[in-house]
Design a protein around this nucleic acid. Sequence first.
DNA 1: TAGTGGTCTAGACCACTTT
DNA 2: AAGTGGTCTAGACCACTAT
Lengths: 239, 239
Amino acid sequence: MTSAVDGGVPSHGRIPKYYAVKAQLLNLLSELGEGALLPAERDLAARFGVSRSTLRQAISELTVEGRLRAHRGQGTFVAAPKIVQPLALVSYTEALREAGRRPGRRVVTVEEVPAPPELGEGRAWHLERVLLADDEPLGVESTYLPVGRFPDLLDGFDPTTSLYAHLAGRYGVRHAEATERIETVLATPRDALLLGTNPAVPLLLMQRLSVDRAGAAIEWVRSLYRGDRIGFETRLRVD
Amino acid sequence: MTSAVDGGVPSHGRIPKYYAVKAQLLNLLSELGEGALLPAERDLAARFGVSRSTLRQAISELTVEGRLRAHRGQGTFVAAPKIVQPLALVSYTEALREAGRRPGRRVVTVEEVPAPPELGEGRAWHLERVLLADDEPLGVESTYLPVGRFPDLLDGFDPTTSLYAHLAGRYGVRHAEATERIETVLATPRDALLLGTNPAVPLLLMQRLSVDRAGAAIEWVRSLYRGDRIGFETRLRVD
DNA sequence: TAGTGGTCTAGACCACTTT
DNA sequence: AAGTGGTCTAGACCACTAT
């Protein structure tokens, strides 16, 4: 049986030229193999008989999908597969190690600011860090913590190490529960600089509000992950 | 305190022109308000003193972010806010009703196919449906179910209604647990047609494998949601 | 038929990296 | 200096929608 039930869906229109080019590029990628250098855009455009703009639209989509990686001044390379990270209350360090990658962090900002609304009134520490996997940017993470609860947070804390480990060790804090929201957004020029990508690449925006066993808000985290390099996995149970 | 710890992040380069245009458009959007018709692309390009291509790059990003919605032949409109759907083992029907929207489905395909590897050997039913919210496409969902377990699935099942309700009512099936993976991808021309969007819009790809209380695989689902119209929310607990 | 967004072209200049 | 990807332009044609 292969009956198709019509539902009012329009028939396939003509296929845009850049999409045919994308299909040809996919063949080329599998021939070249991971890590290989792609021919220059101007050469590929000539080979496929399209303008450079049209070729770039195809390359742009493959970049978004994580199949290609462009380096200004160098060229475009066939990329490695995406990382899959569990969606759970574990630290970035732990999760990445289990995925067989080398975690790292680069501190961008440490400052005290008015608390974001999610944490209520008062002041908050703002810690902004670029998350690295094998020394390459995977995401940028902004963590906000209430100053009232952690007044001396910065004493003896190395911001390139695990914050979760520090909170547990120094304050005995246990993350009990969190609400997390996931959506796609585009990079701002600032995000793009931090992530080493271009503004047209979609990111996974994750916003998390964590509470401890007493129900008090511990942290609010806003993370942007490169959609071309990472996906997330979770287990769902019936309540 | 507002000390910034240097982490080797490059200083801001020059801002691309399309990004300045995007900022101007954002101002315009808040003046116009939800549902308003935007001036034509050629007029906006003239107003901002840029080429139509550059204006379109700005408009394209705002479309991806869900702030604008383009209709070919009609114009571009200021969009409504994103839907937020809980990430849980509840049916689409239920979840959307709770979000205050009117759920709907449009059947694209009903067929019997070789089972996808996730379901093991054998044959599978493939049910492909466009998910609607207030009559507009929100996503496209492909569900695969083992024919061996549900041999007479199609008898007395209206594919425009809830599959979960049918499985529970006819077979007494309880979804006990699922593994779900989330990432971003781009639409193919076929997806774009089904979703009424253009291929440059990133989608949220969700792949779910559900098992019953006995641990047997019940279904494998591959869903594509429009990233400009929906986000997902989940609650995390420490094990 | 007129106006809209979607696609495509040929050419230009830029910032960046390598030689 | 030469080559790369990133941005931008002016103009063209298309499919679609409304009148």
